[in-house]
Design a protein around this nucleic acid. Structure first.
Lengths: 131, 131
DNA sequence: CTGGGTGCAAACTCTTTGCATTCGG
DNA sequence: CCGAATGCAAAGAGTTTGCACCCAG
């Protein structure tokens, strides 16, 4: 069936966009509820998951605690402060980046981790066979 | 105080190494307990966290579900199958990598995410002031 | 109308923690 | 000895889910 265009979905998406600092699902829910107390936390989680699945938002997993969401969908990276937990955007290409990042951002970089997402050969076969 | 060299720690570390496919903490615990039923799950979690903190292991956060651990500590990346959840290693440098990865591994890559970890300027000041 | 979306509350998963006990150095 | 590490069980954080109701198309 078609995906519906509900008020809740619009509000959650707009709230995600307004909270530009990579909020957690919980932070989005809190902000949504401060303006629309009747919208339930479960709905916010459901909508954020749908946004992430459909590519309208990014889910960022930090090495500790809850998932963060990012309304920016173009390819970019993130710097995470292991002390205060702050997450900031990075748009430069990789590799020498660590050094540049240290110089320009003032962050002291300990390390980084890269994760690719895709389908392994076996699962591609399965999905092709099934479809 | 000194960190002690307990039997449990050795067993957990060895088990992590033997499970070469990026097991979750839970999988490590299950494997440990199948050989040493008296070792508690909490201890396995505590030891894995210590290993990750001290740099003797890596914690990998996948976009869904539990944390995975990797006994390989040299810098490398990971390919994650969004269908079966399998995690594989990648040791080439980044960027054109996505293309090479598609060609050589047979994975169909949807995207990737890079995360840097470090201390933001504010937290560096705080820790310098405190120390 | 109809079934996708919602609200609520309970359930669930993964992980951490308090406390008494054990044991490595 | 002594306190770091353990085992247990209970709590905690974050997230998902079953079900009845509601409303967008």
């Amino acid at each position: 069936m078609q995906e519906r265009n509900t008020l809740q979905k619009r509000i959650v998406h707009e709230t995600l966009i307004s909270l530009c600092n990579h909020p957690t699902a919980d932070e989005v829910a809190a902000e949504v509820q401060s303006n629309y107390p009747s919208i339930s936390r479960a709905t916010v989680y459901r909508i954020l998951n749908r946004l992430a699945d459909s590519g309208e938002a990014l889910r960022i997993r930090i090495n500790n605690g809850a998932d963060h969401f990012d309304h920016q969908t173009f390819p970019h990276y993130h710097v995470h402060c292991s002390s205060c937990g702050k997450v900031a955007d990075v748009t430069m290409p990789v590799e020498e980046l660590v050094e540049m990042l240290s110089d320009t951002s003032g962050y002291r970089i300990f390390g980084y981790s890269l994760q690719f997402d895709g389908l392994c050969p076996e699962c591609q076969e399965l999905s092709e066979a099934g479809a």
